[in-house]
Each structure stands twice: as structure tokens, then as C-alpha cells.
């Protein structure tokens, strides 16, 4: 019999049948229509598949789906409702807004990992400075070399975050 897990996905109660040991990434992408987290290595080394599980950045390629049972999972798609958001007409999560403002992408395949990890960082440490930001992002990969714009974006996001929270 196929077991079913229940968890909260981007704020919505979700039940999904899973095959044992299937990583969360495959369940999200192939069964739940979530496309933000992407397969990059399957080894937890690159971060392209990052999601937040109970607010902590996790590599969904290396988390068995069972591990998400009874948790709150946030993906790239759920950031705007998670907040903090910009006050603009088209309200976005401040980190996503900062990435757009700084034009922080080349191919964008890895972008999910940077954005989700930056959200987790700033939720825990909204005062993060250059060194702490670099450190927190140091085990993510970007092959195109978009690091410079990404670093600018996360610094900008930190400023926006503090402004919105005040």
C-alpha cells in the first residue's frame, strides 16, 4: 500500500501518496506541480532544490518525502504570501524584489537556491552584514557566475527587509 503524507505546502494543507524513500524534490515537482526547486545534483551540494521546512532552508533532493510529514514547507512559489512583502502595486517578497531590482540572474536555474537561502538567512539574521551574507551563501553553486549581482541583491534585500519590518 502506498503511504500518504500530509503537510502544509505554501500555507495549504496537502496530502500526497508517496513511494518510500522518494526525495521531497520529486514529490514537489512531479506530483504537486511545484517548479521553483530544481534538480541540480541530488547530493545536497548545490542548493538548486532548496525549500524551507519549518522555516529552515533544506535541500529537498536529499530529504525523503516522509521527512516533510506534518511540517510547513515553503517553496519559491509561496514566498510572496509568506512575506515580508514590498508595498508596491505588485506585492512581492522583498528578497524577490531585490533580485529583480539588481537584475540578479544569468540562466536563473540556480536562482531558487539563492533566494530561499537568503530568505532563511534574513529571517534568522536581518542585520546580516557582508561577511555573514557571504558565509551563509557559501555552499550554494552558480555556474554562470552571477554571484556579484546576487550578492548585491541579498544586501539590498536586507535593507528592504529592515525597512519593511520597522
Amino acid at each position: 500500500m502506498t503511504p500518504t503524507i500530509t503537510f502544509e505546502l505554501n500555507g495549504k494543507p496537502t496530502s500526497v501518496p508517496i513511494e518510500s524513500d522518494t526525495p521531497l524534490l520529486y514529490v514537489l515537482r512531479n506530483q504537486l506541480g511545484i517548479k521553483g526547486p530544481r534538480f541540480g545534483c541530488g547530493l545536497g551540494q548545490c542548493g538548486a532544490c532548496t525549500v524551507l521546512i519549518n522555516g529552515v532552508a533544506a535541500r529537498s533532493c536529499s530529504v525523503p518525502a516522509e521527512g516533510a510529514a506534518a511540517t510547513q514547507v515553503t517553496t519559491l512559489e509561496g514566498l510572496a504570501s509568506r512575506g515580508p512583502r514590498t508595498q508596491a502595486l505588485e506585492a512581492r517578497h522583498v528578497v524577490q524584489q531585490a533580485f529583480i531590482d539588481e537584475q540578479a540572474a544569468q540562466c536563473g536555474y540556480c536562482l531558487n537556491g539563492w533566494i530561499m537561502t537568503a530568505v532563511a538567512l534574513l529571517e534568522a539574521d536581518p542585520e546580516a552584514d557582508d561577511a555573514r551574507i557571504r558565509g551563509a551563501l557559501s555552499d550554494l553553486k552558480c555556474r554562470c557566475g552571477a554571484h556579484v549581482s546576487i550578492l548585491r541583491a541579498v544586501k539590498r534585500a536586507a535593507v528592504l527587509w529592515r525597512k519593511v519590518r520597522k
Binding site: K35, G36, T75, L76, E77, R92, Q96, F99, I100, Q103, A104, A105, G108, L111, N112, I115
Partner: peptide, 12 residues
């Protein structure tokens, strides 16, 4: 601004 960046940032 690049037209591909907002959808990339939103996952769409």
C-alpha cells in the same frame, strides 16, 4: 530590465 528575470525570480 531583462524580461526573463521576473519570471525566473518567481519560479514561473
Amino acid at each position: 530590465p531583462r524580461i526573463d528575470i521576473p519570471p525566473k525570480v518567481h519560479g514561473s
